[in-house]
Design a protein around this nucleic acid. Structure first.
Lengths: 141, 141, 141, 141
DNA sequence: GTGGTCTAGACCACA
DNA sequence: GTGGTCTAGACCACA
């Protein structure tokens, strides 16, 4: 499981974790039943306080994405994949709508906006693809 | 000058105001020399605390977009249009890059993302166009 | 609003606060739109850390019982009364079912259990009624 | 001896075991001198960690309900029945008082509470009766 | 070892 | 003033 946290992007850290876990479940990087890295491990790896990790995990439990396995840790819920795929699309669409609204209100033309999207996608696709295909030492706990 | 503030989109309110003023300057809705509505008027119109408005205006002065005209208020700087056009593109592109990165990291395909962008643009274009062409009682103070 | 917190009864403090706020909404002690005591005030009054109060309030927001009023505090949601009445009955019925199951499994007869319930209710009804009818200095903020 | 453990009812698992053993002694399912299943057996049967079982047994010894019989295991104390009957009533009454207090504080009427108790008892009585009369392969070791 | 809760105290955005 | 977030560190139940 790969995390990329930015403490200064306006989104709370615990919320970034919640989203990235849901996204990982959505794309199958985390499969049902799989255990997540422990709070302590993740805390150390991300250099983030363990309370913050715990808060994210608790939210994920409340959202039905993770379940507690006593003494072993937190595991992906059996039927979490579908809902997480929905959640992913909704979250992305909401953020996109917000940015696009701002762009249109700011006087950019749809054609111009589409051009920017295309540019950014072309730039990003390469680097992200690299990350995504990198070997992940934790995918089978 | 038309403002649309969304308290839940993750961007601080004062920051939304800063951006929207710059965007209005970029597209010419606000021209050099033009006076902005006062903090008090804007505070009342947007139902937003005046400290928040004041903070946005302070930032806009610091960024060289607005300047104080003694006894009259804040006016658009003489040479602000060009820089604001640049800023607009950068601000939009930055937010877009952030969302697109999140989407790609989350396992969405570029094609799927482009489809979502198209959907959202189609939905939004109509409503925004309407707003944009509405008469604006404050554009010539 | 009256709180009675017992740090040692096995239920987490924040959870006790969540329940008692929902119960107060259910019985109308807290009406829609009404502001709750602030986190700081409650923290001092109950001698409980403000993070714990904040956590309870956050849960209550997530549950749709409270909503944030920027700069003023947290208010009871407009349509929270009905759901809180349902939640109250469910929570009580669940806890009762748990105790009654234990009693039956432990070999007590239904008649004996009913007698204990009657005894306890008679004992408690008086004292609670007194509390409930006491003047509440905070019911109209 | 029949155990029914509910990990989600707020009472610690070891505490549930302590209570259920006392209750079984109270109703005679466990008689003085009778040996209890070993920690290992119970741990396996209930799918509960053996530390948790051991802790419950330790508490039961401290409470004078069980005693160690060298080389054979833990047995019900000679004079445990009476005290366990008292304990049973007290433990049940305490939990009931706690729930009933919460219900009254929450604004439920005594009549409404009695109705809920009656409903729950009717629902539960059938299933529990069935369990109680089932043959118990361990009652005479 | 696992997660859950709580405290004390800092800093932030917003009103 | 309001609530929200984060850290550091303690203690707990359970495996």
């Amino acid at each position: 499981m790969f995390f990329s946290i930015d403490p200064h992007n306006g989104v709370a850290i615990y919320e970034q974790i919640v989203r990235q876990v849901k996204f990982a479940i959505a794309e199958g990087t985390l499969s049902p039943g799989q255990l997540l890295p422990s709070v302590r491990v993740l805390s150390q790896r991300l250099a983030i306080n363990s309370n913050t990790i715990a808060r994210a995990f608790q939210q994920l439990q409340a959202d039905g994405a993770l379940e507690l396995v006593r003494g072993r840790g937190l595991a992906v819920c059996a039927n979490a994949t579908g809902p997480c795929q929905d959640a992913r699309r909704t979250l992305i669409a909401d953020r996109l709508r917000s940015v696009l609204t701002e762009a249109l209100h700011g006087g950019l033309e749809p054609a111009d906006i589409k051009r920017i999207v295309r540019e950014q996608l072309d730039t990003l696709a390469g680097s992200v693809a690299t990350v995504a295909s990198a070997p992940d030492e934790e995918s089978s706990p």
